[in-house]
Amino acid sequence: PVSEPVDYMLKRWDGFTSFLEDGRICLTNNAAERALRGFALGRKSWLFAGSDRGAERAAFMATLIMSAKLNDIDPQVWLADVLTSIADTPISRLEQLLPWNWKPKTLGAQAA
């Protein structure tokens, strides 16, 4: 029984030791699990979206909010700015409103 876990580890040795060569690699997946916890806690709430279309809209909004967070942007500040400026933005410049391209209008507007 002891040889099975040892054999498993030896077959994947490069993956197990990769964090030793690259300091960006985390030894555990705790950070990833913490990042997903908030979304996982809302899972049962998705059952009450009201319709398939409502669930699609909720998933769309969750994706935008998480994208803002991943880009170190306060989702509330970003969304408020986008909602107030989207009507005046030409279609050719809509991509500037995406979280990874967005720039706050004033320097103090973004609270990360």
Rank of each mutant, 00 (worst) to 15 (best):
A55I: 00
F60K: 10
K44A: 08
A49W: 03
A55Y: 01
G38E: 05
C26N: 15
R53H: 12
A35V: 01
R53Y: 06
A31L: 12
E33C: 05
S45K: 15
S45Y: 10
A32D: 04
F19L: 11
E56C: 06
K44L: 09
S51E: 01
W46E: 04
L36M: 15
A40V: 06
N30S: 06
S18P: 08
A62H: 10
F19A: 12
R43Y: 12
G42R: 15
A62S: 13
K44E: 03
G15L: 12
N30Q: 14
F39R: 15
R37G: 07
S45R: 15
F19I: 06
L20P: 07
A58T: 01
A35G: 04
M61H: 00
A35T: 03
L27R: 13
R24P: 04
D52V: 00
A49G: 04
S18W: 10
A55T: 00
R57W: 02
L27A: 07
K44P: 08
F48P: 04
R34P: 06
R53T: 05
G23C: 09
A31S: 11
A32N: 14
A32C: 10
L20F: 04
F16H: 13
E21N: 14
G15K: 14
A32E: 01
L41S: 03
L41F: 04
F48W: 03
R53P: 03
A31T: 10
R43H: 09
A31R: 15
A62D: 00
G23R: 15
D52L: 14
I25Q: 14
R24G: 09
T17C: 11
A35K: 15
F48Y: 09
F60C: 06
D22V: 04
C26Q: 14
L41W: 06
A58V: 01
N29F: 01
G38R: 14
A58Y: 01
F60Q: 07
D52K: 15
T28E: 01
A58I: 01
S51T: 04
F48V: 02
T17Q: 12
G42E: 09
N30L: 06
R34L: 08
L47C: 07
G54H: 09
W46T: 03
E33F: 02
D52C: 12
N29P: 05
G50L: 07
L20H: 13
F39S: 11
E33P: 12
A55L: 11
E21R: 15
G54Y: 02
A49F: 00
W46N: 11
G38P: 09
